[in-house]
Design a protein around this nucleic acid. Sequence first.
DNA 1: ACCAATTTGTCCGTATGTATG
DNA 2: TCATACATACGGACAAATTGG
Lengths: 255, 255
Amino acid sequence: MAERFERIQASPAYQLVADAIEREILSGRIQPGERIGTEAALVEQFGVNRSTVREGIRLLEQSGLIRRDSSRRLYASLPRYAKLASRISRALLLHEVTFRELYETTMALEVASVRLAAERITPPQLQAIADNLARTEAALDDPRILSELDTEFHALIAEAAGNRVLQLAREPTSLLIYPTTQVIFEGSPRGPSRLLEAHSRLHAALAARDRQAAGVWMERHVVDWRKGFERAGKDLDTPVERVYMDHVMVGGSRL
Amino acid sequence: MAERFERIQASPAYQLVADAIEREILSGRIQPGERIGTEAALVEQFGVNRSTVREGIRLLEQSGLIRRDSSRRLYASLPRYAKLASRISRALLLHEVTFRELYETTMALEVASVRLAAERITPPQLQAIADNLARTEAALDDPRILSELDTEFHALIAEAAGNRVLQLAREPTSLLIYPTTQVIFEGSPRGPSRLLEAHSRLHAALAARDRQAAGVWMERHVVDWRKGFERAGKDLDTPVERVYMDHVMVGGSRL
DNA sequence: ACCAATTTGTCCGTATGTATG
DNA sequence: TCATACATACGGACAAATTGG
């Protein structure tokens, strides 16, 4: 007999519950910050069992559309960038992307960020970068701190770019690539001073609102990362190791 | 009395169950494709009630680390890019990002993609783009189809770039920005032919493996989008409307 | 193609700890 | 302080679907 109809596959009730609540939030009928009804109320509305409602809620909880406050009550909320970014990082790790892929993407996003930042940076943001620079100068002999300051430096620039889409796009890559600077610097005497010079030049370009110079120096800076990476005996075409997993949060706590 | 200890906040049992399973997958002790134990087995191992186990599983199900096959059994799996991308798109929508933010990010990512594609594109990929071009030429008077072909065109280039990180980075933005071409073309007689010319030039540059030309034409092409957008009477600084939500999947099915 | 065992989906009732007013 | 509401967690039960002989 010919196949006349495609298979009907009814989703489980808990999935339907989750979809229904999700739709309410996405459509704006439930505003972020607004309380989701109590479980008892949802049981009433959906006409399903308590357990089913709870499974549906758990389904949404992970996505960030729903959050529990201290009292365990459920509220609709906006997914946080940090959480999204760490999920993406994890996915990239699991897919075993290579450092080359991170490198190329970082190049595009960091250069774009700093060029925008040169146009839009505010005095307080410039000051924050100057602070970072000072702390970097004081930590030239500590690769671990240096690596953290480097991550912060680029995050500050991304913030100054005033573009949340760009900011979110660069975050996952940043989480994976900047921790490597620690390893690079541990075997490279000239590395830290080169980093400091690049950061100083970038700060100067931003202060001068010089889009062009900022872009050029960022490009050099990212190329420098690659050279250091290769000089440290590493291959760009190897997948990012799971070692860097501990920079990625799991369920609210580090692994 | 002085505060000697900070507050201990135990996570709910279902959260601990989810974290435990997640750790097994992230650490590689459970390989993608491998079955997660049956609920009964997990009840045994964790020493909690089955409802609790089920809530923990639901928590993971949404993240893409766990998937149900047709038989409803649970397998570990790699998070799919498409699912991640649509989640990010949704988050961007909820945060009410502006078209300007999308525009700037698209510019950076599409130019970077096409430059890499010019170096790496394979003959079959080039052929796929040629096919797309032919279909575009045949659909110049249908804005809806044109918009879909435009999205496909850029996705093909991203694929040819051979960089999964870049591919994932551009996808969420693409999901939000390309549907607008439909609206733009509906009131713009010269729009479709300009799109066709840009796509043709890009194809030629890729065929010639001309990195430089490819980048330049892509830049013009993206700028063209902005001009069309503004000519259609729209403001770059308005948030992306929820209208585009229906390009974003919810729970496996469209809204 | 049939049957038995397994597994998931769903429901019911109850107990407990905690936050809120 | 106390009472109430609510989320968490447990135990047991049954139907439906799937698996594997």
